[in-house]
Amino acid sequence: MATSKRKHVKGGTSVAPTGYTAIPVKFSEKHQSPHYLYVKEHKVRENTDPYRPPNRTLFILNVPPYCTEECLSRLFSGCCSVQSVEMCEKPKLGEKPEATESKFFNTKTLLGFKVAYVVFKSPAGVQAAQSLSAQGPLVISSVNHPVQTGIHKWIARYTASVVDPAELKKEVDVFMQAYDQKVAEEDAKAENEDGIPDEDGWVKVTRKGRRPGLPRTEAVNLRALEREKRKRARKELLNFYAWQHRETKREHIAQLRKKFEEDKQKIALMRAQRKFRPY
């Protein structure tokens, strides 16, 4: 394969599966072997992916770990101005960018190979991007736009990992306020509905109010079952009838036999592994 790969580089054309275009990309000028971005126009059924407009979105596979969103944006801005770049671990449907994106919680940095969706301002960008394959490999880190990796990157990450307590506190306070408000609203709503039948005439029983019902949890159900069982067991007589005696004896011998069989199996296994040679 090594030889065939070299052929790609020399020929300057890169193979891609149908529907895709391969764009060679390398980290910096001095590197020899490029990775290949596999790009195609993002196409899904109508209206399933509202945040990635059809025609204007480029779907990119195999984005190398050191390639950041800014990088992609810069690399493709040559084709057409880029509206947004989104990266994720694997292809998935776009979601609405969360309004309350938290700076401190549930953050995850992507370190491996990624997929990306690049949304251009105009449909021409997609076409232009696909034609990039013919040119030489794109360069991620250039003199003008260096990309940090290794020690520099880790030091930067270390610095960024230290948070400002005041900021953190503020965010927490805001969140908790919103949460408290939400809970209060729900409570108020529940209280209003308490005891009032709905349109079919059902009354919802809650844990609050005048006559709280049992909570509907699995544990409660299990406990009830257990209680039933115990009640039944108490009523039963053991070793009362002759057949019960017989049963227990039979059961005893069966147990011994079962044990015997198990032991035999163990022995056979050990014999197979030559476990009986004390030397």
Partner: peptide, 9 residues
């Protein structure tokens, strides 16, 4: 599409 990580055709 799900396993194109560091691979080539």
């Amino acid at each position: 599409t799900s396993n194109m990580r560091g691979k080539m055709v």
